[in-house]
Design a binder for these strands. Structure first.
Length: 429
DNA sequence: GTAGCCTTGACG
DNA sequence: CGTCAAGGCTAC
């Protein structure tokens, strides 16, 4: 590729990167995204060397800030528009109905700060608010909170307390024991309880509507993953020489395995689309990227084990030490950052497989039949999410969709700039 | 730091 | 005076 061609693609790439950055901006990890954006704007060696140790930081917001948000909510629900007291007997209606803690499923001992909770979660919430404590999540902010895991991640426990509707304003500043909870706090209890019931109703309706789709993801996930991973194993320790040709062969094996497996699915007998038509579709590369990322995540689990410097060296080797354009450099950095964000999403086998099919079907020339399949897989994913990670919704589902959008952007960038080899340079020695 | 048990005080 | 939901105490 000549220099002229490279520079002509720059403005196009800039647009794509701007799009990606804009999308980053809109996600939950705001602070981290801003840092990355700065890295992109202002590359220097020091920043580059930090890339593979950067991690998404999930930190509890200031209790004072949360309190302000709660006050704003209170003002809103006190406005005449929505302030009808038709359900004033909420406490009486729901008394004695609780027996499990809404946060961790341990035995609930009563209503505490607006929620049926155990003594443990009650005390935890009180200590957190009284001492204005801040917690950090070392994973992706979606740790399981139940009786046996509740002390493993304070960030996620507190987050769950808030999501489920515990009210910060119910913790007393003056620490006076006894007495009655103020009327405004009671209003918040009532409001949050109603919202939760509405949310549960919506989830249940959706779930019932889609329940029969559950049948479709009863497949042998471990077997297909094992076969796919076997095709990638030679890349560890670089047992095979990476060339244009060998990469093509690996891609072919991965695609072929996936298609053959797809034909065995129950869903194929209902919507029998020939996936082979998608081989000539660039969207296949989405799946290859996702698969390689998933392989690395399962086998290495930590982004630090995939050395930025070594991958960069391999990029030099692959291109036979030819001049690396600033564009290649930036694509590489963006790609590496993207991998690190993937490591923070602990996706499950089912999520991986459903996302793979969705990504393959993301064609621009979508016809009616494959849109049908797309919609069905989308519903299955939704059902699975509601079924398996109800307490993390809608965050988790949105994050997955956002991530698959990002993969499509990256695919577009890699293919238009002939950087399809990049994902294959990530395997550690 | 956690959580089980205890004390407190408004309310019906 | 019993009930409920706040805070307090303390062994672990």
């Amino acid at each position: 590729m000549s220099l002229l061609q490279t520079s002509s693609t720059l403005s196009y790439e800039d647009d794509l990167f701007k799009k990606i950055k804009l999308k980053h901006y809109r996600t939950i990890h705001r602070t981290y995204e801003v840092d990355v954006q700065n890295n992109l704007v202002n590359f220097n060696e020091e920043q580059l060397s930090k890339i593979d140790i950067d991690h998404t930081e999930l930190l509890t917001p200031d209790i004072d800030e949360l309190q302000r948000q709660e006050n704003a909510l209170l003002q809103y629900i006190q406005s005449p528009k929505i302030n009808d007291n038709k359900n004033i007997s909420f406490i009486n209606n729901h008394r004695k109905l609780f027996n499990l803690c809404d946060v961790c499923n341990d035995k609930a001992t009563g209503m505490h700060y607006g929620l049926a909770t155990c003594e443990g979660c009650k005390g935890f919430f009180k200590r957190t608010v009284q001492n204005k404590r801040k917690y950090r999540c070392n994973k992706n902010g979606s740790c399981i909170i139940d009786k046996s895991h509740r002390n493993r991640c304070q960030y996620c426990r507190f987050r769950k307390c808030l999501i489920k509707g515990m009210v910060i304003g119910a913790v007393r500043y003056d620490r006076t024991p006894g007495g009655r909870t103020p009327a405004n706090v009671m209003q918040l209890y009532k409001y949050k309880n109603e919202k939760n019931q509405q949310m549960n109703k919506i989830s249940n309706d959706k779930f019932n509507e889609l329940f029969d789709l559950n049948l479709f993801y009863c497949f042998d996930q471990l077997l297909i993953l094992d076969i796919l991973f076997n095709h990638l194993r030679p890349l560890i320790n670089h047992e095979i020489l990476l060339t244009h040709e060998s990469i093509k062969n690996i891609c072919y094996l991965l695609i072929d395995t996936f298609i053959n497996w797809y034909y065995t699915l129950p869903i194929y007998s209902i919507i029998n689309i020939d996936l082979k038509q998608f081989i000539f579709n660039d969207q296949w590369f989405n799946y290859i990227i996702l698969l390689i990322f998933y392989f690395l995540k399962i086998n290495y689990n930590h982004i630090n084990l995939i050395s930025y410097t070594k991958c960069l060296q391999r990029l030099f080797n692959y291109t036979e030490n030819k001049f690396l354009s600033s564009l290649s450099y930036r694509i590489f950095n963006q790609f590496f950052y993207f991998l690190s964000t993937f490591f923070n999403i602990n996706i499950t086998n089912t999520e991986f497989i459903l996302l793979s099919i969705l990504l393959i079907l993301c064609s621009n020339q979508t016809n009616k039949i494959n849109f049908n399949l797309f919609e069905n897989i989308y519903k299955i994913l939704y059902t699975y999410e509601m079924n398996t990670f109800l307490s993390e919704q809608p965050d988790r589902f949105n994050r997955l969709l956002y991530f698959s959008e990002q993969i499509q952007f990256i695919t577009q960038i890699l293919l238009t700039n002939q950087h399809f080899h990049l994902p294959f340079l990530l395997f550690p020695n």
